[in-house]
Design a protein around this nucleic acid. Structure first.
Ligand code: NAD
Ligand code: NAD
Lengths: 216, 216
DNA sequence: ATGCCTTTGTGAACGCGTGCACAAAGATTG
DNA sequence: CAATCTTTGTGCACGCGTTCACAAAGGCAT
């Protein structure tokens, strides 16, 4: 039975082992003292808690460059997401397969959502169409939306929206880049100091971020 | 002179006004008591601190669906990023314009980086090519990388990498979706309670996240 | 010029998450 | 079966960020 200790996991993840153990303890007592955690069991428990055991049908609306890239992305399937349908307003695209899935026309949006029990929708249309598409998705039963269009969507209570703006990722890189260059103390360095404390980390994720407040 | 009070801004951003004032105070004393903050001046100061006043040349490597979508994305230019070049290994693509910019062959990578003084690179190649592309970018002088390929890149010290995995965004939605459904107390709800505290927020960003630890 | 009213900037208190440190638990060995 | 060793689970303390609350500052009206 392959096991890992909290110490090993913590080192791998770059966090404190006590914190890791405490975090795990909220999910239940899945470790064995003197031994560690049964890897397979632990992965299952965390997966279950995170909702990775069930698979979620998702629809992608707006099959342009971005929509096509998402449809082709293998990382979705491997994390329990199934692309149930691709939807586009362009009649010329209807029936054309993208990533092996035939594109369907927006007219079918409502029936697709209902027939497949879709609760998660991805919007990759131009900004002008996003709110309208959003409204139709929500009306048809979608309660979670991943929005790539550069618009803030308004949705009723109970519906989650996550807006993705990749230029923010670049901004974060540029922010650190700027600090690398001007090491000779730009004015107001205090805030930056605070924001960039644990600089020398090796992680590649949306952590160790950047200040929060900034108007669009 | 149009102004805003910390109270207004805080309400708009959904944060505490005292925190907002304290944050601003780290950048300097840019407000006027009894009046508020001069909007234009404030925007400029924050922009400068965040590095938005200078413009950054970036290169995108791997002009497939995703690379093309990024090249076309208007949000980059509006935030001070300029697409200096598009690079692809496919000889058939060389010279073909994408988003008005002719694609250049990978052979030219080093000279492009040097000639344009590029320090930020975007990798949108297949996973297999990512590390190799990364190495060349870094060797040529790039010190910040935005990586879309599903690989963890290894880079020397002093180089920043941000990995973007959009399936994580879906996972976060699915996580909350799961909670909406099974309100009748799944086992181990404690952690989830903690993670999802401030549920009823109206923001659409990478905040109010999800637990941290999970193996790939 | 004086006084009032608004809003900033910040010292101090509070609360929460993180990390320390250890007792309890179980496995393993003789 | 007892002794030992490893590693978990967690009470507790510390530190940091958030929030409160207010004095100081500046505008504006009289
Ligand atoms: N957030 C980011 O970082 C980011 C990055 C790249 C692109 N984008 C945005 O993503 C969106 C798509 O980008 P793209 O490069 O794929 O654009 P695109 O023009 O290639 O594709 C848009 C697609 O949406 C379809 N469409 C238009 N109106 C529609 C409607 N009402 N219903 C259904 N489909 C409709 C069009 O037919 C087209 O196929 C744009 O809004 C763009 O700004 C965002
Ligand atoms: N992180 C995410 O959420 C996400 C989403 C979608 C796609 N992706 C990833 O992004 C990458 C690109 O996706 P795509 O749909 O655009 O793929 P794609 O196959 O359409 O495009 C890949 C492009 O890279 C080029 N290329 C291959 N090797 C190269 C090299 N050594 N140097 C330069 N260019 C090279 C190819 O010629 C092609 O044009 C893939 O790795 C994919 O898994 C990630």
């Amino acid at each position: 039975m392959p096991t890992v200790s909290s110490e090993e996991l913590a080192a791998a993840a770059g966090v404190n082992s006590a914190k890791l153990r405490k975090d795990f303890s909220y999910l239940g007592s899945y470790g064995t003292r003197g031994v560690g955690y049964d890897v397979e069991y632990l992965v299952y428990q965390i997966s279950r808690e995170l909702g990775l055991t069930q698979d979620w049908p998702v629809v992608i609306v707006g099959i342009g460059n971005l929509g096509a890239a998402l449809a082709n992305y293998g990382g979705f399937a491997s994390r329990g997401f199934r692309v149930a349908a691709l939807i586009d307003a362009d009649p010329a695209m209807a029936g054309k397969p993208v990533a092996g899935i035939p594109v369907q026309h927006t007219d079918e949006l409502e029936s697709i959502i209902r027939d497949n029990g879709v609760s998660i929708g991805v919007i990759a249309t131009p900004a002008g169409a996003a709110q309208q598409v959003c409204d139709r998705l929500v009306a048809a039963g979608v309660t979670s939306i991943l929005n790539f269009a550069p618009t803030v969507l308004s949705v009723p209570d109970g519906v989650d929206v996550r807006k993705v703006d990749l230029s923010i990722e670049l901004q974060i890189l540029a922010f650190h880049e700027q600090r690398k260059a001007g090491e000779e103390a730009t004015a107001g360095a205090a805030a930056v100091q605070a924001a960039a404390r644990e600089e020398t980390s090796t992680d590649q994720g949306p952590d160790g971020d950047v200040p929060a407040v900034m108007p669009a």
